[in-house]
Amino acid sequence: MDNSLEISETPHLRVRGLNVYYNGHHALKNISLDIPDKKITAIIGPSGCGKSTLLRTFNRLIDTIEGVKVKGEVMIDGVNIYDPKVEVTAIRRKMGLLSQRPCPLPMSIFDNVAYGPRIHGERGRQNLRNIVESNLRHVGLWEEVQDRLHKPASELSIGQQQRLCLARGLAVEPEIILGDESTSALDPVSSKKVEERFLELKNEYTIILVTHILRQAKRLADYVVFLYMGELIEHGPAAELFANPKESLTREYLTGIIS
């Protein structure tokens, strides 16, 4: 495993002094963090620790919830995304999201992948066809669906749906992929396929995964972030953090004393 994990001076994603309040509840407490580029970063911690909240602050999906206040900075390519001047759709476009349950849109397989590019103005039929094919190939779904591209996406199996969602996210050419427990609704074989995709994709994308499965974090992660009760307890290269945690809370979590 590659242990030489260096975070560049200007990473894609940098968090500074991030606080999130949810109806008075302090959900994330003063988090500062640099996410290494083109690696897999796993955010781990017991349920309710703020893992998903942190992930949702990265693409401002947290905006859709009533009563949430965000303070601090999340910098993407050096731009604070909570700056009021920033166009929120442009930020979200830079980040593909793969949610817990596969969530295909109510349209055909083809239209699911073409949804993003169409929204961003791509109209050429041949271009769209190329985009759909290359992204479906990218997630290893092309062979399985090439002769039923215009069938409803809901006819695919759950595992195929999740890979379709990944293709849909990739089709807008993001820089970062966010996964929110993306394999937890899948069967072991489908999970494995999705994990394989992540390992392949990390050469081109910065990947951030929220997971409550420690073994999955160990399998995939290059960098690990441990949250507990909304606080950032420890973060560091995966090999180091798993072998030799510095904080006692991390050790207790890793050994299963707290969960």
């Binding site: 859709t64 979200r92 999201l97 969530c103």
Partner: peptide, 18 residues
């Protein structure tokens, strides 16, 4: 309609109207 469906659409950069 599950919130994830809205998230899925927003996260590829669609606006609310779309």
């Amino acid at each position: 309609i599950p919130g994830e469906l809205q998230d899925a659409s927003l996260s590829v950069g669609a606006n609310k109207c779309e």
